[in-house]
Design a protein around this nucleic acid. Structure first.
Lengths: 154, 154
DNA sequence: GTATTTGCAAATGATTTGCAGTGCT
DNA sequence: AGCACTGCAAATCATTTGCAAATAC
């Protein structure tokens, strides 16, 4: 993605710190502030936490980034792209984008609520294919129990 | 709702503070910590903020309450009831429950993702009927502009 | 009677701010 | 050159914790 163009379009300056933030978020998909700060420090050790916070705020305000909020988890950030939702695995904590058409669902909600709806912030939770088959094997062989507490927090 | 029974079922003691918290959340539908604390202090002035925090944590853990997280807004809490989503008005900040069947949407997401999905945390944003008609009138008569900045934050 | 819960105060953690200096454009 | 951005330190705001006293059951 051409972040330089997106920044210039928003009249924001292209600084190394800002580019590093965007590239790390792009690379990791969804990331919380501390993780982001750690990643950034690997290549740009002089970057301050305050700068990370300031840029996250500016980039969210200008629509370059968006917040991903999930009950029971820390807030994360992603490159803003409309028209997708998230799925999260309760066992391993995996979080994935799901690009899916939700216009039928949206129209149902418009009819039911009377609101003129546009954007959707949604996270389905469940079990990913990997954990699902692992859990099935465990039950089959009675080897061990998969516990809820294995789920990651951040 | 019979909160005493719900608490006893979870082996939690029925204290005045706890009941006050549950009743206020029930009355307001969705409420953030500070708002809740203010409301509680009206009738139970001796209640401490630490007690509010401790109870919110316990009640969320035990499934009596659930978190409502919305991009750009403070976290709120509601009485836990499965199978509903939220709609929010970007103009006036209204937040409403929407009890709607989303099983078709869920099955689409299961097929598309390979995850075994269950719960959904979702918020549609848009314009409520009240703000929608107000805006329409304003455009019709060119009386004034409805600005985005009128939306509430908390 | 006993374990839980409460309130207080202090500690911790997260985020924001002020400001002087630096670096895009 | 001029304004936006950065880094640092301090300030602020949010949440958690430890502990003694109170209270539910």
């Amino acid at each position: 993605m051409d972040f330089e163009q997106r920044l210039k379009a928003k009249k924001l300056k292209v600084t190394p710190q800002r580019m590093a933030i965007l590239k790390e978020i792009e690379a990791y998909g969804h990331i919380c502030i501390e993780e982001l700060y750690e990643k950034i420090r690997i290549r740009h050790p002089s970057t301050s936490l305050a700068t990370v916070y300031k840029n996250i705020a500016i980039l969210c305000d200008s629509g370059v980034l968006s917040e991903v909020k999930i009950p029971g988890h820390k807030q994360r950030y992603e490159i803003n792209q409309s028209g997708h939702i998230h799925v999260m695995c309760e066992k391993c904590g995996a979080l994935e984008d799901l690009h899916i058409d939700f216009s039928d669902f949206k129209h149902n909600c418009i009819n039911a609520s009377g609101y003129d709806l546009s954007g959707l912030s949604a996270v389905f939770s469940g079990v990913c294919p990997k954990c699902g088959s692992a859990s099935k094997k465990a039950i089959d062989s009675l080897d061990r129990n998969i516990t809820e507490s294995e789920a990651m927090i951040c």
